[in-house]
Design a protein around this nucleic acid. Sequence first.
DNA 1: TTATTTATTAGGAATGATTACTATTTAATA
DNA 2: TATTAAATAGTAATCATTCCTAATAAATAA
Lengths: 121, 121
Amino acid sequence: MRYSYQREIILDIVRSTKTHPTAEWIHNKAQKKIKAISLGTVYRNLGLLENLGKIQTVKDNNVVRYDCNTEPHNHLKCKICDTLIDIPVANEAMKKNVKTKYNFDVDDINITFIGTCSKHN
Amino acid sequence: MRYSYQREIILDIVRSTKTHPTAEWIHNKAQKKIKAISLGTVYRNLGLLENLGKIQTVKDNNVVRYDCNTEPHNHLKCKICDTLIDIPVANEAMKKNVKTKYNFDVDDINITFIGTCSKHN
DNA sequence: TTATTTATTAGGAATGATTACTATTTAATA
DNA sequence: TATTAAATAGTAATCATTCCTAATAAATAA
Ligand SMILES: [Mn+2]
Ligand SMILES: [Mn+2]
Ligand SMILES: [Zn+2]
Ligand SMILES: [Zn+2]
């Protein structure tokens, strides 16, 4: 894969925040560094970076969010401030349980706890 | 809420299957009974039926699927045949755990196990 | 260094699921 | 039967994402 300054900037931006930004947010930030960078370039490079395992994606309603945390992990989603908070991945025991109960081989567990975060107490 | 034949048919169709159909699939089925039923009517009534608690929605990638199972429950999603399989909702203990660990009040838990179902053994 | 090759980009068009709009129809009820 | 307003059909708009293509630029060979 050939070097690209656009891709470098995009990766820097994703790594600069824990807020699980959208492609559009990343595009806006990137334009501060490269004024003519296109949204298509942002999407393409985010896809490439995901394939390289350098970032992850999180589906949030009808948008994809990008995550510099490449460890398998899950999220708390606050209804009020819309924040996604990383939590350690749930126990491997769940996979085994599903295998024995349903004969279903689990590759991935997607868990989101939806509720109200500690800011709103 | 006023009676509508369209709404009755739509609810019947959702209740007729455990396949978690999309709005388009439901629309196709509905057209067999009411040839001029519009997709907008299908979406509007699915929304109303969800508000009435008569059906549930499940987000699957970038489409919404509709579910006649109104009990809180979770899903196994098979990568190969794309099936969604209902499983009983995970333990209430998880909610408590999240509350004590993160001071996060959980309303809803969204869990999808992604993998390979028992058909492909 | 300079020329060649081809991956990458910018910009814009296309897609696809869903929602919004509006004139017409129809259920409810007076 | 006449009135009223909710619901519908049909179509346009939206919005995130993907696709397309001529121009640009990174890598490499001469
Ligand atoms: Mn995360
Ligand atoms: Mn279900
Ligand atoms: Zn919050
Ligand atoms: Zn399967």
